[in-house]
Nucleic acid binder design. Structure first.
Length: 271
DNA sequence: CACGGATCCTGATGGC
DNA sequence: TGCCATCAGGATCCGT
């Protein structure tokens, strides 16, 4: 589920409330994608300093080291005071002086990983190859165009790859390409500089709007308060196969690229 | 080495 | 309280 907007919405929903908390207890459930990397009790007594985001990772700065949380396909974080007993899919829980953080993740593609610092090999392995942040100053149209020129594959695949830009997943890749008027199957290297600039802007626009709408909730996403997102209600193409394009009424088409569904309008999006 | 495909796991959905 | 196939917001690993 979670792409950059959902991760950012999650971060915003509990970062302020957890900052300054003292960790009182940590427990883990069934194995996630990667092991925690330290005994849970090593975290007890530490202070939570801040919650940041890098790509689709939440970074929780501790007084000694940091935790990296990835939500995978089906993960969600909740933070509160009055929780029922751990559920079947609650696989990580951290009780603090300011509330309890839980990760619920049915498919267990997510992870919670402890690292001693961002230069720790464990952290570097996960964060080291990530591309530029799309909502930062470093995301530059000219540089983006240069990055695309190096890639021979379809632009949709390049966006998902996370090397040219991070945080764009399956929903927002289709949406951004629609806004930019670019066919998802177009080879990245063939995209002109002006069209790369359009796509650059479209990515920023789509992600910013999605964050403002609280993210997308297709099946199970919610922020740390349990509130769902609404972006999907105004998706232009995602999951709209056969429905009329919101711009030109041509039926939306779908195809598979790298085992993922892609949605587009043949009329509005040119190769 | 760049690319495509299989893979991890559980649950929902729809056809038969 | 049927069974089976397919699909789901991610990302790594492994062939070619």
């Amino acid at each position: 589920m979670p792409e950059l907007p959902e991760v950012e919405v999650t971060r915003l929903s509990f970062a302020d409330r957890v900052a300054g908390a003292r960790i009182k207890a940590v427990s883990v459930g069934k194995p996630l994608r990667w092991p925690l990397g330290c005994p849970p009790r090593q975290l007890v007594g530490q202070r939570v300093l801040a919650v940041r985001r890098r790509g689709k990772y939440l970074l929780i700065d501790l007084s000694d080291g940091l935790m990296l949380i990835h939500l995978g396909m089906s993960g969600s974080v909740s933070f509160g005071d009055d929780f029922p007993a751990l559920g079947k899919h609650d696989h990580f829980e951290m009780v603090t002086s300011l509330g309890t953080l839980r990760l619920n993740d049915p498919r267990r593609f997510g992870a919670v990983v402890y690292a001693r610092g961002e230069s720790d090999p464990v952290a570097h392995k996960l964060l080291g190859r990530l591309g530029v942040e799309p909502l930062s100053e470093a995301f530059d149209p000219a540089a983006f165009h240069q990055a695309l020129k190096l890639r021979k594959t379809a632009i949709k695949q390049v966006l998902l790859g996370g090397e040219a830009v991070v945080g764009v997943g399956n929903i927002y890749a289709s949406e951004a390409l629609f806004l930019a008027g670019i066919r998802p199957t177009t080879k990245a290297s063939r995209i002109s500089k002006p069209r790369a600039a359009l796509l650059h802007r479209a990515i920023q626009l789509v992600l910013t709007q999605a964050i403002a709408k609280g993210g997308s909730t297709l099946r199970d996403f919610s922020n740390a308060h349990g509130e769902v997102g609404h972006f999907q209600l105004e998706a232009m193409v995602y999951d709209r196969t056969g429905l009329p394009c919101r711009v030109c009424a041509t039926p939306i088409k779908s195809l598979r690229q790298g085992q993922r569904s892609t949605f587009y309008c043949v009329s509005c999006q040119k190769p």
